[in-house]
Design a binder for these strands. Structure first.
Lengths: 238, 238
DNA sequence: CGTGCCAGGTGCCGT
DNA sequence: ACGGCACTTGGCACG
């Protein structure tokens, strides 16, 4: 529907949402949001998408991110306010509210999209872990993984194992270039394990990633931690 | 255009992209991506948006995130492959390629959206910083900010100042509930400053956030760091 | 439901 | 361009 009346748009959109369709509306609108933060957006032409799962997105002509949005699980309400189409999308925990008020409508559409397929993605954190477990020698000769996601008071360790000399080794994996945050994680885990396994236990910490930033490398050196370069398998048949 | 032919769609979309319009296409398609990672997505009905800034997004009926996408700055190519509409969006650094091949078309649209307005957002990290600088007593009586974004070997400190006794104080600000990562940041900055300012310099580290998780509080205690509860002003006239 | 952490994170700003 | 970091981060898996 191009250039629909506000009344017709309310009708069509309400019916479409009831049906479980994906709805899009383009037009001149203002947007107000309040919740974890709050925002206002003056009049301008934008593209709004409402999903049957409760997602709402307001896209301008630029950017990968919507200028305003509401995450899945929201309730969409559509009504006529002062004769104009208004979309209100709300949720609780946290209490959040998104209001889009249209001044002029360019288009309204409804789509019943059938999609059974799941995305097959490779080159992830998980793929890197698999690569380590498949051939632990990639870390160093004699390295033996003993557990993954091993719990410590500081959080779960990616890979927990021991080296050729029986020393405890903690691996922190990053699928892409590692920064200071990764070193921080690794340090916390190593500290926690040193505490847990008595003072005399030697614990090595190894950051595993395709590469690391200078800052990350300096931090590793300062803390007596190590680095091993390894990238996740980008093969599609992983 | 509802149920356009593939030929017509290519024509219309090419013209629209040249014009600098925002383009949407809905239909049955497959999606392939390769770049930082790689993925495949079998046949299903989805909604594709192409922005004039080079953004591409493939949305299914669920989720705030597109199932596949390409960030701003990409080149969109549209052509007929085996008589079907094909969209190829590519970029370099990193080399990435997104291919959407349509089997059936439900709709194709082009929008010339005029939008001069900027989003006005409040309740951000910046707003929290302002609140601290406006009334430093909110941190503690006698606290005096001396600099923001002060550089250290470990990164830039949010707020750098001194307490009533002249001791150096480092603030790490979080707009919402703080976790272990925030403590890690704070610790790095405090360590770096202790090194920089001679060994005898006392440096206090304070995490400032509306709240903190248990783990974060425990980590703070272990490291001898402190916590002050403060939320950013959510007022819209900030 | 909160806590923690990965993400093809994205966006912003600095060197 | 790379680096560091905030984000209404979103998403997932787990207690």
């Amino acid at each position: 529907m191009t250039h629909p009346s506000h009344e017709a748009a309310v009708e069509v959109i309400t019916a479409a949402l009831d049906r479980g369709d994906l709805v899009t509306v383009a037009g001149l609108c203002t947007v107000d949001y309040s919740g974890r933060a709050s925002s206002t957006l003056g009049p301008g032409e934008r593209h709004v998408m409402l999903k049957p799962d409760g997602t709402a997105m307001v896209h301008t002509v630029e950017g990968r991110q919507p200028v305003n949005w509401q995450p899945p699980g929201c309730e969409h309400e559509v009504d006529l306010a002062d004769g104009r189409l208004r979309i209100v999308s709300t949720r609780s925990t946290p209490e959040e509210r998104l209001v889009v008020e249209f001044e002029r409508l360019l288009q309204a559409s409804a789509f019943g999209l059938a999609d059974e397929e799941d995305l097959s993605l490779s080159g992830t954190h998980e793929d890197l872990k698999d690569r380590v477990l498949e051939d632990p020698g990639r870390i160093e000769p004699g390295f033996t993984p003993l557990a993954t996601e091993r719990e410590t008071p500081a959080g779960a360790v990616d890979v927990y194992g021991e080296d050729a000399d029986g020393r405890t080794v903690v691996l922190e994996l990053k699928r892409s270039r590692a920064g200071p945050d990764g070193v921080g994680q690794l340090e916390r885990y190593v500290d926690a394990l040193r505490r847990d396994l008595h003072a005399d236990a030697e614990v090595r910490g190894v950051l595993v990633a395709p590469s690391a930033t200078d800052r990350a490398r300096r931090l590793l050196a300062e803390r007596g931690l190590e680095f091993v370069s390894l990238a996740p398998d980008t093969d599609d048949d992983a």
